[in-house]
């Protein structure tokens, strides 16, 4: 056997175990779920027609899209100035600020959501402070509504928005800003004409990630949201665990996946998403 052939064989043997694992425990399950969703007795696309044809299910999809969109907008608006300040910090302050962004990443979403339940509760600290200040007469209903879902989801997704924007900002050549300044442009003009366009790829990558992750959210809306505003992920869980209609759950899963991959393919034409993903 030649040396290159031996090299190729070794490479194949190194990759094979992980490939088999992903094939058996990830690709095959998804393929089987897909097969299930298109082999309904009522016709190949009956579950899809049922989901998209019903007013109730359609509202779940629209809710989820709208929720993901608003959460993304809020996250980007908060992440942009935060990432900017991160680029200006040095030494110990930089480390502290950066750990504030990274720390929540590794705390379970369940616990972060639970923390918000504690804070927003009827007898929780926020209500009590407002009562003591005399700002309100009786406790506000802060939990189980769109507001609490937004707070919880932005809290979980914000670090995903900060990091790509930060990565784009540190690549900006500051001499360009000085040049613009020296040529007499107002700070706002320098920001709008130079800084914002240069950092836009980071913003786009951040928005795509946050939006895609938000589309699949389950734990936070399930715990912080009301019963009326369920997300697609919650619908899928209910269809499987409570109503045992697997074909509908499969169809809902693949509609969600189709949206995600369509968006990803679209976004990949504008920003190198791979880099941003690994930079996580």
């Amino acid at each position: 056997m030649s040396l290159t052939a031996r090299g190729h064989l070794a490479t194949a043997l190194l990759l094979l175990p992980a490939l088999l694992f992903i094939a058996v425990w990830f690709v095959t399950p998804l393929a089987q779920l897909f097969q299930l969703s298109v082999s309904d007795k009522a016709g190949p696309f009956a579950p899809y027609a049922q989901l998209l044809g019903s007013e109730v299910y359609r509202r779940v999809f629209v809710n989820t899209l709208w929720l993901a969109l608003t959460v993304t907008a809020i996250s980007i608006l908060l992440a942009y100035p935060t990432a900017y300040v991160l680029t200006r910090l040095k030494g110990w302050w930089w480390t502290l600020a950066f750990y504030c962004v990274l720390f929540p990443f590794w705390i379970s979403v369940l616990i972060r959501t639970f923390a918000w339940m504690l804070l927003l509760e009827k007898n929780g600290p926020i209500n009590r402070v407002l009562l003591e200040l005399g700002a309100i007469d009786r406790p506000l209903e802060l939990l189980f509504n769109a507001g609490s879902v937004h707070i919880g989801m932005v809290h979980v997704l914000l670090p995903y928005a900060v990091l790509p924007i930060y990565a784009a900002m540190i690549r900006v050549d500051h001499r360009l800003l000085l040049a613009s300044d020296g040529l007499g442009a107002a700070p706002l003009m320098t920001f709008l004409r130079i800084y914002l366009p240069l950092t836009m790829p980071g913003v786009t990558a951040a928005a795509v990630f946050v939006f895609l992750l938000a589309l699949g959210f389950f734990i936070t809306p399930a715990l912080l949201g009301g019963v009326s505003a369920i997300t697609v992920a919650m619908l899928i869980e209910q269809l499987v665990n409570e109503r045992l209609v697997w074909s509908l759950a499969g169809a809902a899963s693949f509609i969600l996946l189709a949206v995600i991959f369509a968006l990803l393919a679209l976004a990949a034409r504008f920003v190198p998403l791979g880099q941003a993903l690994v930079a996580r």
């Binding site: 990759l15 992980a18 490939l19 992903i22 425990w25 990830f26 095959t28 399950p29 998804l30 089987q32 779920l33 299930l36 895609l212 589309l215 699949g216 389950f218 992920a233 899928i236 869980e237 499987v240 697997w246 759950a249 499969g250 899963s253 969600l256 996946l257 995600i260 990803l264 791979g274 993903l277």
Partner: peptide, 25 residues
């Protein structure tokens, strides 16, 4: 292509992966 395949579980919503796994397991 292979890198994309290996990283795909980060993109697919966990609830979808979970339901699919549950179905075969």
């Amino acid at each position: 292509v292979l890198t994309g395949l290996f990283l795909a579980p980060m993109i697919v919503p966990v609830v979808v992966t979970a339901v699919a796994l549950y179905y075969v397991i």
